[in-house]
Design a protein around this nucleic acid. Structure first.
Lengths: 121, 121
DNA sequence: CTCAATGTATTACTGACTTAATACAACAAT
DNA sequence: ATTGTTGTATTAAGTCAGTAATACATTGAG
Protein backbone atom coordinates (compact mmCIF):
# COMPACT_ATOMS: atom_id res chain seq x y z
CA UNK A 1 0.00 0.00 0.00
CA UNK A 2 1.27 3.40 -0.91
CA UNK A 3 -0.06 6.90 -1.28
CA UNK A 4 0.60 9.27 -4.13
CA UNK A 5 1.82 12.63 -2.87
CA UNK A 6 1.73 14.16 -6.34
CA UNK A 7 -1.92 13.27 -6.71
CA UNK A 8 -4.38 16.05 -6.09
CA UNK A 9 -6.65 13.66 -4.25
CA UNK A 10 -6.17 14.16 -0.51
CA UNK A 11 -3.99 11.58 1.14
CA UNK A 12 -6.57 10.69 3.75
CA UNK A 13 -9.08 9.90 1.01
CA UNK A 14 -6.56 7.73 -0.75
CA UNK A 15 -6.11 5.86 2.50
CA UNK A 16 -9.88 5.54 2.90
CA UNK A 17 -10.15 4.11 -0.60
CA UNK A 18 -7.31 1.68 -0.05
CA UNK A 19 -8.67 0.37 3.23
CA UNK A 20 -12.22 0.26 1.98
CA UNK A 21 -11.04 -1.67 -1.04
CA UNK A 22 -9.12 -4.12 1.11
CA UNK A 23 -12.11 -4.67 3.36
CA UNK A 24 -14.62 -4.97 0.55
CA UNK A 25 -12.42 -7.35 -1.40
CA UNK A 26 -11.84 -9.50 1.64
CA UNK A 27 -8.12 -8.83 1.81
CA UNK A 28 -8.89 -7.86 5.39
CA UNK A 29 -11.38 -10.30 6.80
CA UNK A 30 -14.37 -9.49 8.96
CA UNK A 31 -13.24 -9.00 12.55
CA UNK A 32 -9.58 -8.78 11.61
CA UNK A 33 -7.36 -6.33 13.40
CA UNK A 34 -6.19 -3.44 11.25
CA UNK A 35 -2.80 -1.77 11.38
CA UNK A 36 -2.53 0.76 14.18
CA UNK A 37 -2.80 4.44 13.40
CA UNK A 38 0.87 4.99 14.15
CA UNK A 39 2.11 1.95 12.26
CA UNK A 40 0.16 2.79 9.18
CA UNK A 41 1.32 6.39 9.38
CA UNK A 42 4.91 5.25 9.61
CA UNK A 43 4.51 2.85 6.75
CA UNK A 44 2.87 5.44 4.49
CA UNK A 45 5.19 8.17 5.70
CA UNK A 46 2.33 10.46 6.59
CA UNK A 47 1.15 12.09 9.77
CA UNK A 48 -0.82 9.94 12.23
CA UNK A 49 -3.65 12.47 12.11
CA UNK A 50 -4.03 11.85 8.43
CA UNK A 51 -4.48 8.15 9.05
CA UNK A 52 -6.76 8.88 11.97
CA UNK A 53 -8.97 10.97 9.72
CA UNK A 54 -9.20 8.12 7.25
CA UNK A 55 -10.21 5.70 9.99
CA UNK A 56 -12.86 8.07 11.24
CA UNK A 57 -14.49 7.98 7.82
CA UNK A 58 -14.43 4.22 7.79
CA UNK A 59 -15.97 4.10 11.24
CA UNK A 60 -18.70 6.47 10.09
CA UNK A 61 -19.46 3.98 7.31
CA UNK A 62 -19.63 1.22 9.88
CA UNK A 63 -16.85 -0.76 8.28
CA UNK A 64 -14.45 -0.33 11.19
CA UNK A 65 -14.82 -0.28 14.94
CA UNK A 66 -12.42 0.66 17.70
CA UNK A 67 -11.32 -0.97 20.90
CA UNK A 68 -10.03 2.01 22.81
CA UNK A 69 -6.55 0.90 23.63
CA UNK A 70 -6.33 -2.24 21.61
CA UNK A 71 -6.66 -1.14 18.04
CA UNK A 72 -9.09 -0.91 15.19
CA UNK A 73 -10.89 -3.81 13.61
CA UNK A 74 -12.91 -4.66 10.55
CA UNK A 75 -16.59 -4.92 11.33
CA UNK A 76 -17.92 -8.42 11.84
CA UNK A 77 -21.11 -7.58 9.98
CA UNK A 78 -20.45 -9.39 6.73
CA UNK A 79 -23.79 -8.32 5.33
CA UNK A 80 -22.77 -4.71 5.71
CA UNK A 81 -19.49 -5.39 3.97
CA UNK A 82 -21.32 -7.04 1.11
CA UNK A 83 -23.71 -4.13 0.91
CA UNK A 84 -20.84 -1.68 0.66
CA UNK A 85 -19.20 -3.81 -1.98
CA UNK A 86 -22.35 -3.79 -4.07
CA UNK A 87 -23.02 -0.10 -3.60
CA UNK A 88 -19.47 0.86 -4.34
CA UNK A 89 -19.45 -1.17 -7.51
CA UNK A 90 -22.78 0.26 -8.61
CA UNK A 91 -21.78 3.83 -7.97
CA UNK A 92 -18.49 3.76 -9.79
CA UNK A 93 -20.05 1.82 -12.63
CA UNK A 94 -22.82 4.35 -13.05
CA UNK A 95 -20.35 7.19 -12.86
CA UNK A 96 -18.12 5.52 -15.39
CA UNK A 97 -20.91 4.86 -17.85
CA UNK A 98 -22.22 8.39 -17.48
CA UNK A 99 -18.83 9.79 -18.36
CA UNK A 100 -18.43 7.47 -21.30
CA UNK A 101 -21.87 8.29 -22.63
CA UNK A 102 -21.14 11.98 -22.28
CA UNK A 103 -18.19 11.67 -24.62
CA UNK A 104 -20.13 9.62 -27.09
CA UNK A 105 -19.72 5.94 -26.31
CA UNK A 106 -22.72 3.67 -25.93
CA UNK A 107 -22.98 0.47 -23.90
CA UNK A 108 -21.83 -1.87 -26.65
CA UNK A 109 -18.82 0.27 -27.45
CA UNK A 110 -17.90 0.39 -23.80
CA UNK A 111 -18.14 -3.37 -23.47
CA UNK A 112 -16.00 -3.74 -26.55
CA UNK A 113 -13.37 -1.51 -24.99
CA UNK A 114 -13.38 -3.49 -21.78
CA UNK A 115 -13.14 -6.80 -23.57
CA UNK A 116 -10.11 -5.61 -25.49
CA UNK A 117 -8.32 -4.20 -22.48
CA UNK A 118 -5.72 -6.83 -21.84
CA UNK A 119 -4.94 -7.06 -25.53
CA UNK A 120 -2.14 -4.51 -25.67
CA UNK A 121 -0.14 -5.35 -22.59
CA UNK B 1 -23.58 23.44 -17.89
CA UNK B 2 -23.07 24.03 -14.23
CA UNK B 3 -20.31 23.74 -11.70
CA UNK B 4 -20.56 22.14 -8.30
CA UNK B 5 -19.31 24.46 -5.60
CA UNK B 6 -19.63 21.81 -2.93
CA UNK B 7 -17.38 19.46 -4.83
CA UNK B 8 -13.77 19.33 -3.71
CA UNK B 9 -12.62 19.24 -7.31
CA UNK B 10 -11.42 22.71 -8.29
CA UNK B 11 -13.94 24.68 -10.30
CA UNK B 12 -11.53 25.38 -13.11
CA UNK B 13 -10.94 21.65 -13.52
CA UNK B 14 -14.66 21.00 -13.61
CA UNK B 15 -14.91 23.56 -16.38
CA UNK B 16 -12.04 21.90 -18.23
CA UNK B 17 -13.78 18.53 -17.99
CA UNK B 18 -17.08 19.92 -19.16
CA UNK B 19 -15.63 21.68 -22.15
CA UNK B 20 -13.36 18.80 -23.03
CA UNK B 21 -16.35 16.48 -22.90
CA UNK B 22 -18.38 18.75 -25.11
CA UNK B 23 -15.59 19.00 -27.67
CA UNK B 24 -14.77 15.31 -27.66
CA UNK B 25 -18.41 14.32 -27.98
CA UNK B 26 -18.97 16.74 -30.82
CA UNK B 27 -21.41 18.90 -28.95
CA UNK B 28 -19.09 21.70 -29.94
CA UNK B 29 -18.00 21.07 -33.51
CA UNK B 30 -14.50 21.51 -34.86
CA UNK B 31 -13.90 25.17 -35.59
CA UNK B 32 -16.94 26.28 -33.63
CA UNK B 33 -16.76 29.41 -31.57
CA UNK B 34 -16.87 28.86 -27.82
CA UNK B 35 -18.52 31.08 -25.23
CA UNK B 36 -16.43 34.10 -24.31
CA UNK B 37 -14.51 34.11 -21.07
CA UNK B 38 -16.75 36.77 -19.63
CA UNK B 39 -20.00 35.18 -20.77
CA UNK B 40 -19.11 31.79 -19.42
CA UNK B 41 -17.99 33.32 -16.15
CA UNK B 42 -21.30 35.13 -15.85
CA UNK B 43 -23.26 32.02 -16.72
CA UNK B 44 -21.39 29.85 -14.22
CA UNK B 45 -21.30 32.62 -11.62
CA UNK B 46 -17.57 32.33 -11.20
CA UNK B 47 -14.70 34.71 -11.63
CA UNK B 48 -13.49 35.31 -15.22
CA UNK B 49 -10.00 34.32 -14.14
CA UNK B 50 -11.27 30.90 -13.20
CA UNK B 51 -12.70 30.39 -16.66
CA UNK B 52 -9.56 31.79 -18.22
CA UNK B 53 -7.52 29.23 -16.34
CA UNK B 54 -9.69 26.46 -17.69
CA UNK B 55 -9.29 27.69 -21.25
CA UNK B 56 -5.55 27.86 -20.83
CA UNK B 57 -5.50 24.16 -20.03
CA UNK B 58 -7.57 23.35 -23.10
CA UNK B 59 -5.26 25.42 -25.27
CA UNK B 60 -2.30 23.55 -23.85
CA UNK B 61 -3.96 20.32 -24.94
CA UNK B 62 -4.41 21.79 -28.39
CA UNK B 63 -8.18 21.46 -28.28
CA UNK B 64 -8.83 25.19 -28.33
CA UNK B 65 -7.23 28.12 -30.10
CA UNK B 66 -7.67 31.83 -29.70
CA UNK B 67 -8.30 34.66 -32.08
CA UNK B 68 -7.05 37.54 -30.09
CA UNK B 69 -10.06 39.81 -30.16
CA UNK B 70 -12.65 37.55 -31.62
CA UNK B 71 -12.96 34.72 -29.18
CA UNK B 72 -11.92 31.15 -28.61
CA UNK B 73 -12.62 28.28 -30.94
CA UNK B 74 -12.54 24.52 -31.02
CA UNK B 75 -9.53 23.28 -32.95
CA UNK B 76 -10.17 22.30 -36.57
CA UNK B 77 -7.87 19.32 -36.24
CA UNK B 78 -10.45 16.57 -36.12
CA UNK B 79 -7.76 13.93 -35.87
CA UNK B 80 -6.53 15.51 -32.68
CA UNK B 81 -10.04 15.58 -31.30
CA UNK B 82 -10.46 11.93 -32.15
CA UNK B 83 -7.13 11.12 -30.53
CA UNK B 84 -8.18 12.85 -27.33
CA UNK B 85 -11.48 11.05 -27.38
CA UNK B 86 -9.77 7.69 -27.72
CA UNK B 87 -7.15 8.42 -25.09
CA UNK B 88 -9.67 9.78 -22.65
CA UNK B 89 -11.87 6.73 -23.08
CA UNK B 90 -8.94 4.36 -22.70
CA UNK B 91 -7.64 6.01 -19.58
CA UNK B 92 -10.88 6.13 -17.69
CA UNK B 93 -11.73 2.60 -18.78
CA UNK B 94 -8.44 1.24 -17.52
CA UNK B 95 -8.82 3.13 -14.30
CA UNK B 96 -12.35 1.88 -13.87
CA UNK B 97 -11.43 -1.75 -14.48
CA UNK B 98 -8.46 -1.53 -12.16
CA UNK B 99 -10.71 -0.27 -9.39
CA UNK B 100 -13.31 -2.93 -10.00
CA UNK B 101 -10.72 -5.69 -10.04
CA UNK B 102 -9.28 -4.39 -6.81
CA UNK B 103 -12.58 -4.86 -5.03
CA UNK B 104 -13.06 -8.31 -6.49
CA UNK B 105 -14.97 -8.06 -9.75
CA UNK B 106 -13.65 -9.67 -12.90
CA UNK B 107 -14.32 -8.67 -16.48
CA UNK B 108 -17.41 -10.77 -16.95
CA UNK B 109 -18.96 -9.54 -13.73
CA UNK B 110 -18.26 -5.96 -14.74
CA UNK B 111 -19.88 -6.45 -18.13
CA UNK B 112 -22.86 -8.00 -16.43
CA UNK B 113 -23.18 -4.95 -14.19
CA UNK B 114 -23.00 -2.60 -17.15
CA UNK B 115 -25.54 -4.55 -19.14
CA UNK B 116 -27.97 -4.37 -16.26
CA UNK B 117 -27.51 -0.71 -15.58
CA UNK B 118 -30.67 0.74 -17.09
CA UNK B 119 -32.73 -1.96 -15.44
CA UNK B 120 -33.52 -0.17 -12.20
CA UNK B 121 -34.28 3.34 -13.38
C1' DC C 1 2.82 0.69 39.88
C1' DT C 2 5.00 1.58 35.71
C1' DC C 3 5.45 1.26 31.07
C1' DA C 4 4.30 0.68 26.44
C1' DA C 5 0.93 0.56 23.11
C1' DT C 6 -3.21 2.15 21.65
C1' DG C 7 -6.64 5.92 20.17
C1' DT C 8 -7.96 11.01 20.77
C1' DA C 9 -7.89 16.05 20.97
C1' DT C 10 -6.04 20.73 20.26
C1' DT C 11 -3.88 23.94 17.83
C1' DA C 12 -1.48 25.94 14.17
C1' DC C 13 0.91 26.15 9.60
C1' DT C 14 0.79 25.81 4.72
C1' DG C 15 -0.47 26.03 0.11
C1' DA C 16 -3.81 25.52 -3.55
C1' DC C 17 -7.56 27.61 -5.19
C1' DT C 18 -10.63 31.29 -5.77
C1' DT C 19 -11.99 35.81 -6.00
C1' DA C 20 -11.49 40.49 -6.84
C1' DA C 21 -10.13 44.87 -8.75
C1' DT C 22 -7.98 46.87 -12.28
C1' DA C 23 -5.39 47.81 -16.18
C1' DC C 24 -3.75 46.76 -20.73
C1' DA C 25 -4.05 45.13 -25.75
C1' DA C 26 -6.11 44.14 -30.25
C1' DC C 27 -9.32 44.52 -33.60
C1' DA C 28 -14.09 44.98 -35.94
C1' DA C 29 -17.97 47.82 -36.53
C1' DT C 30 -19.87 52.13 -36.72
C1' DA D 1 -11.64 58.17 -34.44
C1' DT D 2 -14.63 56.09 -31.22
C1' DT D 3 -16.83 52.46 -29.16
C1' DG D 4 -17.58 47.83 -27.79
C1' DT D 5 -16.10 43.30 -27.56
C1' DT D 6 -12.73 40.16 -27.13
C1' DG D 7 -8.54 38.10 -24.60
C1' DT D 8 -4.55 38.96 -21.29
C1' DA D 9 -1.83 40.34 -17.34
C1' DT D 10 -0.93 41.80 -12.58
C1' DT D 11 -1.44 42.05 -7.93
C1' DA D 12 -3.49 41.34 -3.68
C1' DA D 13 -6.15 39.18 -0.50
C1' DG D 14 -9.21 35.66 1.52
C1' DT D 15 -10.68 30.94 2.41
C1' DC D 16 -10.44 26.40 3.43
C1' DA D 17 -8.86 21.63 3.32
C1' DG D 18 -5.05 19.10 4.38
C1' DT D 19 -1.31 18.20 7.07
C1' DA D 20 1.59 18.37 10.96
C1' DA D 21 3.37 18.91 15.86
C1' DT D 22 2.33 17.93 20.19
C1' DA D 23 0.10 16.76 24.24
C1' DC D 24 -3.53 14.05 26.52
C1' DA D 25 -6.27 9.70 27.79
C1' DT D 26 -7.01 4.76 28.43
C1' DT D 27 -5.90 0.24 29.40
C1' DG D 28 -3.40 -4.27 29.43
C1' DA D 29 1.10 -6.40 30.41
C1' DG D 30 4.90 -6.99 33.16
Amino acid sequence: MAVDFENSIPIYLQVVEQLKSDIISGKFSAGERLPSVRDLALQLKVNPNTVQKAFTELEDMGLVFTERTNGKFVTEDIALIAKHKQEHADIITQKYMKTMEKIGFDKSEVIFLINNLGGNR
